[in-house]
Amino acid sequence: MVEVKSISKSYGLKAVVDDVSVSIQKGKITSFIGPNGAGKSTLLSIISRLMNADTGEVLIDGQKVNETKSRELAKKIAILKQSNHLSLRLSVRDLVSFGRFPYSQGKLTKEDQVYIDEAIRYMELEDMQDRYLDQLSGGQKQRAFIAMTIAQDTDYILLDEPLNNLDMKHSVQIMKVLRRLANELGKTVLIVIHDINFASVYSDYIVALKDGKIEAQGTVNDIMTSLVLKQVYGMEMPIQEINNQKICVYFS
């Protein structure tokens, strides 16, 4: 379980994350939603130790994040940020292999190779595993990076806007993979996502942030109501039920 205890972070005078506490259920997909500048990405960065909080603490399976060795954490939690423009000449397989670094420190064992193969298969990258990253499309690159975090074999996977710049087909593909990771392998997935309908259809829990504070949190059914979403986004958010999925038709 991930426990966030009264985390605050500010730049200058502006509080980006303001006294946030939240618990994340194991083995589920939790989506963080909210308007621009709500502090979603910052919160994700703090949970994954990419940033330090000003006050408060994060516990992962009862261990304090800022007191745990970075190498140990890397076997427990994987984070993927949105901007991944690498200028390195790196093949897809090389990139995925880096996911094993926390275990092998650069010298790959047979066991590592198994994990790497599996991750590549999981993301359906077999036929392009020897291609270089700079030859791939945005969607393919994104899948390669996700494959790396899968090879990292952590209980927790954090993704910051994984659907950014992807078309619908690739977005659905990635969300389905995440769903499988949770259902089949029991991984805990945290994502920051803008499209609330993707959040509604594919996640178990939703945490809504606004101005650095938690505006609402709960199951998909709790959050996907006109009333709650109106509070979060400050506009009319009519909800319709289609095939048992709650879809928000906000194109008023």
């Binding site: 994954s48 060795k69 975090t149």
Partner: peptide
């Protein structure tokens, strides 16, 4: 060489 965020993610004490 993969960048700070990836390095931290992979457990390097950056």
């Amino acid at each position: 060489s993969l960048g700070k965020e990836t390095a931290v993610n992979l457990g390097v004490d950056y």
